[in-house]
C-alpha cells in the first residue's frame, strides 16, 4: 500500500564521541541493508554532524556505545522523540530486525512492493504546450494557478507507462525509473529531438486528432462523411496507437487493460482539452 503521508523512520548510525566505530565493511553492510528496506540513514562521525536539519519527529540512534549501554537522549526542544539502541556484537540482520521492531506498525513504502513511477517535468525544456495534459487519460497532469502544466496526481500514473513522454515534442517529460534515455533524464541530443518529433506525428494521429474530431463531432454528425470523422473512429485509432506502443514495448499491456470505458475516455478527453485550452488562452497562447 502506498502511504503518502508517512515518512520512513530516520536512523542515525552514531560513531562520534562515546561510541566505537564499526568496521568499514560492517558499516557499509548495515547502511545498505537499512536503505534497501526504505529507511533514511544518517552517518554521524566525530567529524561533525551532517549539517542537515533534524526535522523528524522521531529518531532512532544506533551505536556501539561504551559499556554496551545506550544513552538516554532527549531533544532540548521536546519536539523529537529520540531512542538509542546499542548494537555491539549484532549482525546486520539483527540490526535490521531491531530497527523494524522500533518502527513498529508505523506505515512506510516498502521497496519491492511499489515503484515510484510518475512523470517529472524538465521546465528548462517545457514550452507549456499542454499536449501531455490532453493526452493522458488518467488525470496525472493539471494546470497550476499561474497557468503552468504540472504533475498533480502522480499516484494515477500507470507503472512502467511512459506514453506521455512520447508525445512531448520537447523531450521535457522524464520518468526517473525508466531504463533508457532520454526518458530517464539523460541529456537530450539532436537525434533524440528528431526521433521525438517523429513520435509526435504518430501520437497526433490519436492524441491530437481525437480532440479535433470531438470538437467537430456535431458537425461531423451532419456530414455524409460522418463515419470517417466519428468519435468512435477516433477512439478506435487511439486504441490502435496505444496497442502499437504496447507491442513496441513502449508501454505495458496492463495500461491497455486499465483504460477507462469509451464513454469515460470521451468525457475525460473533452475535460482535458477544455483545461488545456483554458490554460493556453489564459497564457495568451493560441490553442
Amino acid at each position: 500500500m502506498i502511504t503518502h503521508t508517512a515518512r520512513p523512520l530516520r536512523v542515525v548510525l552514531y560513531e562520534g564521541t562515546g561510541a566505537i566505530a564499526l568496521s568499514a565493511p560492517a558499516r557499509a553492510q548495515v547502511l545498505a541493508a537499512l536503505l534497501d528496506k526504505g529507511y533514511a540513514v544518517t552517518r554521524a562521525t566525530a567529524q561533525g554532524s551532517t549539517g542537515f536539519p533534524h526535522d523528524d519527529r522521531s529518531l532512532l540512534v544506533l551505536g556501539q556505545f561504551q559499556n554496551q549501554q545506550a544513552p538516554d537522549l532527549e531533544d532540548a526542544t521536546g519536539k523529537v522523540t529520540i531512542e538509542a539502541r546499542d548494537i555491539t556484537g549484532l549482525e546486520t540482520l539483527d540490526i535490521v530486525s531491531l530497527v523494524e521492531k522500533a518502527r513498529g506498525n508505523k506505515p512506510m513504502n516498502q521497496p519491492g512492493t511499489w515503484k515510484p513511477w510518475f512523470p517529472v517535468i524538465d521546465y528548462s525544456r517545457c514550452t507549456n504546450c499542454m499536449q501531455c495534459l490532453s493526452f493522458c487519460l488518467f488525470d496525472v497532469y493539471g494546470v497550476s494557478k499561474d497557468g503552468k502544466i504540472q504533475v498533480q496526481n502522480n499516484d494515477n500514473c500507470k507503472t512502467n507507462c511512459p506514453a506521455c513522454s512520447r508525445v512531448c515534442p520537447e523531450v521535457a517529460i522524464m520518468f526517473p525509473k525508466h531504463q533508457a534515455g532520454p526518458i530517464n533524464g539523460e541529456v537530450v541530443n539532436e537525434e533524440d529531438l528528431r526521433r521525438e518529433k517523429m513520435k509526435v506525428d504518430i501520437s497526433s494521429l490519436l492524441g491530437g486528432d481525437i480532440y479535433a474530431r470531438l470538437r467537430d463531432r456535431s458537425e461531423a454528425a451532419k456530414s455524409r462523411f460522418s463515419k470517417e470523422r466519428s468519435a468512435d473512429k477516433a477512439l478506435e485509432e487511439r486504441k490502435k496507437c496505444l496497442t502499437k506502443m504496447a507491442q513496441d514495448g513502449f508501454i505495458p499491456a496492463e495500461v491497455l487493460a486499465s483504460l477507462p470505458s469509451p464513454d469515460e475516455i470521451m468525457r475525460k478527453a473533452e475535460e482535458a482539452q477544455a483545461r488545456a485550452q483554458a490554460a493556453l488562452s489564459a497564457n495568451g497562447t493560441p490553442a
Partner: peptide
C-alpha cells in the same frame, strides 16, 4: 558524516519535507 536516503523519487512522490 553524510546523509543517505532510500530513494529521492519515493520522497518526491509524497512531497517529503526533508
Amino acid at each position: 558524516s553524510f546523509e543517505s536516503v532510500a530513494d529521492l523519487c519515493e520522497m518526491a512522490a509524497h512531497r517529503d519535507e526533508r
